[in-house]
Design a protein around this nucleic acid. Structure first.
Length: 321
DNA sequence: GATACATGAAAAG
DNA sequence: TTTTCCTGTATCC
């Protein structure tokens, strides 16, 4: 259940273990055999994330060329990256990446629904890729795609999307996405404001609309609207430009902290409870998310919950106006 | 053993 | 607006 910050961490992990390496690809589960066959034996480039979308570029080892620049903004503008095959993964609600490495690479933390590492405790097998000092762990559960070298393995389970795109298709995918606060390129804040002010849907819904803003999920939308005191039920176009700018900047801060920390902690320092009730452990991490019926850490009003477009929305009716 | 649920999004109605 | 897809875990019999 990852929001955008997790995907940027996945990109970092995949880059650290696979970039510039020749990678073996398999589909232990069997649902991505043709795709794995295309990637198998190819050289990976630097992985990229845009919102919740992950892109890992590949090219045949026979293909000449230098480093190759996999920057998505340049690709979107039509530049040749030197990589013909792009693995595109969206984890959806319960996809996950899990990693194992030998001693040569730091072990990336698992990302997604099952927050456990592969490797430890798992049965190991002498498989292609195993070395004298490192045996590949047996795939656990439904592994759609396994990527590995002699030093590291990444297992992908339960993705919403897992496909191979050519550069034009990658650009088409990016065209449908709004600006990503983690990337925060110049002009992104203006674009965010423009897109928001065109919409009559509640801003609580708009923040999660990936064509307006790519990256925030249910937690960041609740927490950042709380932090900026915006009522999520208000129509997006009805929120002042100033407050929209404040919201964008808060999303930039919150999501980037998420990338840095590897977890979502959004309670402002001054609101962190000195001591917390046993039944309210979440209060240290979240101000409103999953705090229905509890007292607002800022104003004391009772935090509310309701269903909005199929997802649970949490907010404080006291201080979000 | 059901069953509900999850930090998502697209398709179907 | 509802259904569907993808998987694993928690919780309830």
């Amino acid at each position: 259940m990852p929001e955008g910050h997790s995907i940027h961490r996945v990109a970092g992990a995949l880059t650290s273990i696979f970039a510039r390496e020749q990678v073996q690809a398999r589909s232990p589960q069997g649902r991505f055999i043709a795709g794995a066959q295309i990637l198998d034996g190819q050289q990976a480039g630097v992985a990229q994330a845009w919102g919740k979308h992950l892109f890992l570029p590949f090219r045949p080892t026979s293909q000449p060329g230098g480093e190759g620049d996999t920057d998505l903004a340049k690709l979107q503008a039509g530049a040749d990256t030197g990589y013909p095959n792009w693995l595109h993964v969206h984890l959806g609600l319960y996809g996950s990446w899990r990693f194992d490495t030998d001693q040569s690479h730091p072990l990336p933390h698992a990302i997604g629904a099952p927050r456990v590492r592969i490797g430890e405790g798992d049965e190991r097998v002498e498989d292609a890729g195993s070395t004298e000092t490192w045996l590949l762990p047996q795939p656990r559960g439904q592994v759609r795609l396994r990527l590995h070298t002699e030093h590291a393995v990444a297992d992908l389970s339960g993705p919403n999307r897992c496909e191979i795109l050519d550069p034009v298709q990658v650009a088409d995918t990016l065209d449908k996405l709004g600006p990503d606060p983690i990337r925060d390129h110049s002009g992104d804040e203006d674009r965010f404001v423009t897109l928001m002010r065109r919409r009559s849907i509640p801003i609580g819904q708009a923040v999660m609309d990936q064509s307006i803003c790519a990256g925030p999920g249910n937690i960041y939308r609740a927490e950042c609207l709380f932090r900026t005191r915006i009522n999520p039920n208000r129509a997006a176009k009805q929120v002042s430009e100033n407050r929209l700018r404040t919201l964008w900047r808060d999303l930039v801060v919150a999501l980037r902290e998420g990338v840095r920390d590897g977890k979502i902690i959004t309670v402002p320092t001054e609101l962190v409870p000195a001591h917390i009730a046993p039944e309210d452990k979440e209060a240290r991490r979240f101000a409103v998310y999953h705090r229905t019926g509890r007292s607002c850490l800022r104003c004391g009003a009772t935090v509310r919950e309701k269903n909005l477009a199929g997802r649970k929305l949490f907010w404080c009716p006291g201080c979000q106006n």
